[in-house]
Design a protein around this nucleic acid. Sequence first.
RNA 1: GGCGCGAUAGCUCAGCUGGUUAGAGCGCAUGAUUCAUAAUCAUGAGGUCCCCAGUUCAAUCCUGGGUCGCGCUACCA
Length: 679
Amino acid sequence: MKQFKRTTVTSALPYANGPVHIGHLAGVYVPADIYVRYLRLKGEDVLFIGGSDEHGVPITIKAKKEGVTPQDIVDRYHNIIKKSFEEFGISFDVYSRTTSPVHHQFASDFFRKLYDKGEFVEKTSEQYYDEEAGQFLADRYITGECPHCHAEGAYGDQCEKCGTSLSPLELINPKSTITGSKPVLRETKHWYLPLDKHEKWLSQWILEEHKEWKTNVYGQCKSWLDMGLQPRAVSRDLDWGIPVPVEGAEGKVLYVWFDAPIGYISNTKELLPDSWEKWWKDPETRLVHFIGKDNIVFHCIVFPAMLKAEGSYILPDNVPANEFLNLEGDKISTSRNWAVWLHEYLEDFPGKQDVLRYVLTANAPETKDNDFTWKDFQARNNNELVAVYGNFVNRALVLTQKYFDGKVPACGELTDYDKETLREFTDVKADVERYLDVFRFRDAQKEAMTLARIGNKYLADTEPWKIAKTDMERVATILHLSLQIVANLAIAFEPFLPFSSEKLRKMLNMPSFSWNDLGKINLLSSGHQLGTPTLLFEKIDDSAVEAQVQKLLDTKKANEIKAYKPAAIKENVTFDDFCKMDIRVATVLECTKVPKADKLLQFKLDDGMGGRTILSGIAQSYPNPEELVGMQVLYVANFPTRRLKGIDSEGMILSAEDADGRLVLVQPSRPVTNGVNVG
RNA sequence: GGCGCGAUAGCUCAGCUGGUUAGAGCGCAUGAUUCAUAAUCAUGAGGUCCCCAGUUCAAUCCUGGGUCGCGCUACCA
């Protein structure tokens, strides 16, 4: 394996439209922090880069909704995020933001360099334009009816009700969110990064030279490379972001996904204005990106292509991507407020940073999605941190206090059993390292915990409280060794549980730690005065976790109520307009799922005129379509025929969307003749 | 639908290039113990390794097909 002189560690930039939650922590920040603390403790040269990602359309929309500026939004969340990271002990060397002047200049220069080198291609395409506002509309500035679930308020890129990704051109009755007017298509020019031109070296670099990447990462990259890469737009028509530094590009900004990863570099520059380059350009620097699985393609393909196109940068050596963490069985969601927010956790559980760090690491979604439950949180705290780790420390310190006035007793002759115990625990260092080096934090932490298990067993087997009645010299040796194990625990857990290690370090009255001391049995010398023992961890009782569960249940209920919020009334239409709509009644003759389409049902209707076929995207709400046969439905009869999946669809069947996103077909309250008009 | 990743004990997960009784932690049962936050220590119960077929002397592991979960992507009047 290649030897490096230093390591640059980045963690995905959290998007500043909301606070940070446990999913972010488990997936990215806790593992990155453990890794960085480990390297630092080993005395390696390492830089840990973080920052808020503050551009992009969702922020402008949130700002508009709240009647404030985008800057207000990002200021609010950047401050919450930054403060909560600090309090939680995520040990960034720098935590800046993409609205910083340094970043703006840097990203702008970066783009310009690629532009001047001819690394982009320019393309003109048709996009929606708001004539009243005089601007192009980014995907999320267009809303309309979702063509699938017919929910109002679907965005141009995604319907939040049914979760489908969309293109703005697919929306029914598109509307500008700025003025409410109907947008028109207009030509606009954008810059694209021709990923296809980078395909060859990317394949070689990832598929041949980085077979050691995690399977999820490698597999995802291979899939993209095998499909063939397409040019990717790197600019947008928007006024919130970094202006495209090219003549004639007024009103255009860098696409947020282009500017965000550059933030890793500009934040480094902000911290180290004179020496940042060695962290990004020296081939002896190892670059590691910690991300979640949704970011794989960006960090493994697009960003490296940007760096390569620029020409002077190193490429990531590894991109450890985690899977997702669920919460009490449901996907974590910022918009649905289904999350444990870090800043709230810190308020609800003051001084318990390490408990959350421990639980998130013990249950980290390293190989597949995992579930966080408060019950598990409580159990791991009470049964592992308190019972195993905290208890062992407490036993050793209390016994020392009791028999030796808190002074480390002298070590006498070692028995075979002592030696055996020592051998076991000196292995722990190598095991922890072996796991940390390949980003297996869950196993690494478990391995550290075996130190405490060894200690507990040692005390149970040697029974110093019994021997104290006859042989104090032997007790001295037993406690001497036990205290060495305690000191080792403090070091081994520093990357994982920094607050507890610090607390323990003070209890032991140790000046400092080094990773290289791990495994040694002379960390505390005889006669050394220990500090006052206090409890390292406290039990968490039922009421505390029940309160958290209740909080989530309340959220769920609130979400349901909120989901019922009816959409705003559309602008008025005339009676004549309405009469143009030809809505009729028909009876379902046949209803089947369309093959090779997840969401389409094919209806054969008796419309009183010889029958017609209509496709409707409601399959997910009706898993047993045959049950619909015989039912009467309403449909729009005068839409032009549309061909979908090779089938002509002659109209649109009407359905209502329930608060939970399920689609419900609308039917007459009493049977009526097929083909009659609705009006 | 296409592609990727996953599916192993009640729960959360290990399991190297296929090879005797498939492992760990928690939970559970029984026993021991009391220095310790009723914590600890020992022992034990508990598994059609998602399903089907194939390759092989031998499959949890390889191949093909399927089911379920998640991500990316498409379709969704």
